[in-house]
Design a protein around this nucleic acid. Sequence first.
DNA 1: TTTTTATGTGTAACCGGTTACATGTTCGTT
DNA 2: AACGAACATGTAACCGGTTACACATAAAAA
Lengths: 328, 328
Amino acid sequence: MSTIKDVAKEASVSVATVSRVLNNNGYVNEDTRKKVLKAIEKLDYKPNAVARSLFKKQSKTIALIVPDIKNPFFPEIARAIEDVLNNNDYTLILCNSDEHEDKEKKYFDVMKQKYVDGVIIVTSTLTPKYIEKNNIPIVSLDRPIHNSIPSVAVNNYEGAKEAVQYLKAIGCKKIAHVRGPVSVINADERYKGYLSEVSNEPWFNEEFIINGNYNVLETAKATMVLLSKHRDIDGIFAGNDYMALGVLKAATQMGIRIPQDLSLIGFDGIQLCELTSPEITTMAQPIYELGESAAKLLLDMIEGKAVNPAQQEFKVSLKIGQSTKVLR
Amino acid sequence: MSTIKDVAKEASVSVATVSRVLNNNGYVNEDTRKKVLKAIEKLDYKPNAVARSLFKKQSKTIALIVPDIKNPFFPEIARAIEDVLNNNDYTLILCNSDEHEDKEKKYFDVMKQKYVDGVIIVTSTLTPKYIEKNNIPIVSLDRPIHNSIPSVAVNNYEGAKEAVQYLKAIGCKKIAHVRGPVSVINADERYKGYLSEVSNEPWFNEEFIINGNYNVLETAKATMVLLSKHRDIDGIFAGNDYMALGVLKAATQMGIRIPQDLSLIGFDGIQLCELTSPEITTMAQPIYELGESAAKLLLDMIEGKAVNPAQQEFKVSLKIGQSTKVLR
DNA sequence: TTTTTATGTGTAACCGGTTACATGTTCGTT
DNA sequence: AACGAACATGTAACCGGTTACACATAAAAA
């Protein structure tokens, strides 16, 4: 690999001049510029990003910390983010936290040591205090942390209400809810949205709420228990699509037909919804847009454009599949 | 952020000494070491990874280039790789190539500029010549490029044969194949494996082979055409699980029951197989192991342990789900 | 006692860029 | 003719580490 010195020598100029043409700043005579460009071409010179980082204290790299990339929501997010970064000559570092605070913090340390320019994080454990202490541009995604931390998310509470309203509208008389982990803010919001819609219904029963922990198999098990005890449930609002898959599985196994016997609606709008049969009706988040916006917001912050701690809230939208059916 | 100079001053020693205790090499008096450690503690000093990289010409970072992280095979791979890296204090950069040679090459350039220590790549387009020219430790995953390039993959040909053999064994009389993209080596191998098992069968028909391009919806469409024309097909070997999902979708839509009317087997063994109903029978690759091995191999290469261009080949194993049924 | 050898520490060069500052031209103005 | 602004380029310090080398001292060997 040739260095800037080699180029300087080849073009018979100083390294400063080469640096100037490289970065297109300062005065450079047109002829000199051409000479340098020719030398760069000849030597197939590529500037050393690490040396540049050391001086500039920035690496053109951002990190994405998610609980687990295997959860199908996150690859879609990651893809959107990477697209934006790629278009802006940034690079994406991927981290799996398993929701462990220790891992998150360890990643944070490493990122600071590597001059990573910013972080997009999906977390339920990190505190605003810790984050501010680290003083690195950050955007929380999917799960707002605090109004002092920029975030990109959807209105889970409203979305959940709409989902339940839809089930009601198509004629469901007894609606159950599979909620996500207690510690996860969006699962909580969705749960609250469900509650606000059903807690005053005469049929409402605490037992209609089960916890699927954002896990398919766990959901399937819990759903079987639920449905065998309460055979008259005719609608289920799953806290996310992944768990809706679990419900689908349980129902199929029990010979309960979806949507004929039971209407099912999920939340998120992951691609998987369209691939199952029946296709899952869901309250869809604009996932790609979410990732895209988070990335753009972060880049703006890094480049000093965005100043106010933006709290972007997107709307979810009902995406009707085949798992819900108008009953009457 | 404090630097090594701050620590040196705090401990009243030279930066060289601090560096020595940091890296645990060279002679350092026990008392001096303690003094330095105390200073490090006091200042909460973390060495600057970029400065270190510049000198050492290595970044403790490796890149993973996949066609698209949204394809559910890759998050599982990525997770395995990241686990290994994390345990070895390496960081993972994620790149989506969309199978475009241009993007792959662009990533390569960036990686070299950033002193990325190695690359794990899933590609069908890059040539051994190009790769060797770049002279960076590399492991090709899932799709061997050439025997001069270390790779980690499964025996797709054998696996495909076994899959078809299984369909035969359970009594399928007419077996179709949904193949993957023509340009992708593993899709080709699987196709050949299928052919070797069926081309001599009296029932064999060229029309039993359709192309799903590793795409669900495309597969579903093609499958509907296939099945409406050839109603006596009673077994389908899908080139991967993702396409098997497409077959499942098509069959459901057409009222063809799986496995009662049609047995379906996929390839890969992604987690999704267990989440559908019916669960998909598949020739499972040891996905996690694949990623793990690729990462370990690459780290060995980077640290100069592995020298011979290893071509690791893993075995696939039949994982019986609910999409295949013994017919007689 | 002298010579090695092992131990301990500091100075400064180096990794490959960027940029502040100095220096020197060339113009346009007055 | 004199002077300031714009243009052009080079020198060297700097970013924050690592390490070769020099030097000093203590312990071991001759």
